[in-house]
Structures are given as C-alpha cells and as structure tokens.
C-alpha cells in the first residue's frame, strides 16, 4: 500500500488507481447487497425451529448470538443443536425441534448461564417465565380429545399442568350424552417447552409449538373489554345497567357470573357464551 503514493505521481497511474478502486468498491458493494438480502431472508425462522429459553426476539437474537454453541454443550439433555448450512435456520445458531427433543426446563437454566453474549437473556432466572414459543392445538379434526376420547397426553406431560394446558369440559354433540375434555393452552403460563408436541400420540402432532409471533394474536390497542372496564369502574359505563330477567321453569334459577343454571340447588354444567 506504500506504493500508492508513487503511483499517484503520474496521471495515467492515477487514473488506473481510480479505476481499480472503483472496481473493487463496486464489486464489494454488490457482495454487500447480496449479504444484506441474505441476512434478511435468514431472519425468518421456520415454524418448527424453537430457540432456547431466554432467546431475544429473532431480529435481536441474530445481532447478539455469536454461534459458539456453549448453550448446546451445557444442555444436559442434548436438546439444542447448532443449525447446519442447508437447514433453513441461520447458520450456526442454536435451536431445537420440539417433536424430536423438547426442552426439559431445567430449574437452573444452564443454557442461559452458558451464553457469553446475552443472546439468551441472563435476566431469565425462573424457567417458568421462559417463552420459547407457544403451544397451539392446531388440528381439532384429529385431536383425540376433540373426537371425544380421553387421550389427555399433552395435558398430562405438561410441566405446568393445569396452568399452561387445562382440560375444559364441553358437550359432545355427536353422542349427545358425553363430555369432551378439550385441551386449552393458556399463554400466561405456556413456556413453549414442546413436551406436548413431543408426546402427542398422533402420527402428526395435533398440538404444536410455534414461535411466539406466529402463535399469539393481539387485540387492537384501542380495544376495551366492557366487562373488565365495568369491573374497574365498579359500575356500568353505559347507564343504566338493566338487570336481566330469566324466564325459567319452576325449580330452576340462574346465578349470573357465578354457578350458572341451578336446578333444585344442584349445579348443572352449562355452556358458557
């Protein structure tokens, strides 16, 4: 590079220098454009690839994770692996596939402790607070519980049983006399560990864990739920709140917001609206 000064002495070599530099910069700029677009395409994580606990949102994660694999090594269950080139996950970044090996939700979260860069947020100290993804009972046509059977496996294996997945009784209209126990996922407690997906007895799991942004809906920010506002205000916001009259057969009464339909003092299941 020291010879650059000498080259510039003659106008011909100065021109050559400018041409060379322009060519180099142009070529590198083209490469950079390609890299920019490739980086953008890599930011779309496939739905079946789940990041380790505490992983930052995908965009930030790719700016923080150095692909060192220390989290992979410290996972006692060999859940995590580093993406190989060819897999549609950013090369070298850690992920797991719930259907193959789910997260065992270690209490001490060794993967987060191992991370040297904070790509796995060290602020995550309770594994129950992890949000690796969100389970969704995505196929109601094949889920055995939806067919009226008592499979319940996803519910039973859930490490946050009764909080992350609960079984909600529903009338079975097919038989007309049985109850279906519908697995319902609650995002307040689901960590996205993937045990439900792993253990679903079907050939293809009916319940699956998806990255949070795919699985979770979001209310319009201007939405206000009337019943909550009413509770907050302590009174109806539209006045006056007329009390509903129930026309019930003799021996029945209805407790609004409480036990529902009551016959002779005994509780009856009633479909909630």
């Amino acid at each position: 590079m020291g010879s650059v000064g000498e080259k510039l002495k003659s106008p011909v070599s100065r021109r050559q220098f400018l041409i060379d530099t322009t060519q180099t910069v142009g070529g590198v700029a083209l490469l950079g454009l390609g890299l920019f677009h490739y980086a953008g395409s890599q930011a779309s994580l496939p739905a079946d690839a789940i990041r380790p606990p505490g992983a930052l949102a995908e965009k930030e994660f790719l700016g923080a994770c150095v692909r060192c694999g220390l989290c992979v090594r410290d996972c006692p269950y060999d859940t995590l692996s580093l993406a190989k080139l060819g897999r549609n996950v950013a090369t070298g970044s850690p992920y797991f596939t719930a259907r193959k090996v789910p997260c065992e939700m270690c209490d001490d979260i060794p993967c987060v402790k191992a991370c040297p860069t904070g790509a796995l947020d060290p602020g995550l100290t309770k594994i129950d607070d992890a949000r690796m993804g969100l389970a969704v009972l995505i196929d109601q046509e094949t889920c055995l519980n939806y067919l009226g059977l008592r499979c319940d496996v996803c519910y039973r294996v859930c490490p946050v049983i009764d909080k992350a997945i609960s079984l909600e009784p529903r009338h079975n209209p097919r038989t007309g006399k049985h109850t279906m126990f519908i697995p319902v996922v609650h995002s307040d407690h689901c960590t996205g560990c993937g045990k439900c997906e792993r253990s679903c007895v079907l050939e293809q799991a009916a319940i699956k864990v998806f990255p949070y942004h795919l699985a979770k809906g979001e209310l319009g920010h201007h939405y206000r739920l009337g019943w909550e506002e009413k509770q907050k205000a302590g009174d109806s916001l539209v006045s006056p709140d007329t009390e509903h009259k129930y026309n019930l057969p003799e021996g029945f009464e209805y407790e609004h917001g409480g036990r529902g339909l009551i016959r002779d003092g005994a509780m009856q299941p009633e479909k909630q609206k």
Binding site: L35, A39, K59, G63, T91, G92
Partner: peptide, 25 residues
C-alpha cells in the same frame, strides 16, 4: 441489518464449527 452479517457466510467459523458440531453443507 441488525445482524452479525458475516457469520451467515463466514467460511472460517463455518469450517471450525462444522468440524466440531457437524458440518452440514
């Protein structure tokens, strides 16, 4: 891009990581 850009294509880290963690493509 807000990402560690060169790591998407870096042959150096890909090779070293590949030898230790599995090389893929």
């Amino acid at each position: 891009s807000g990402t560690i850009a060169w790591e998407f294509v870096n042959p150096v880290s890909m090779f070293h990581r590949g030898l230790i963690f599995g090389i893929g493509l």
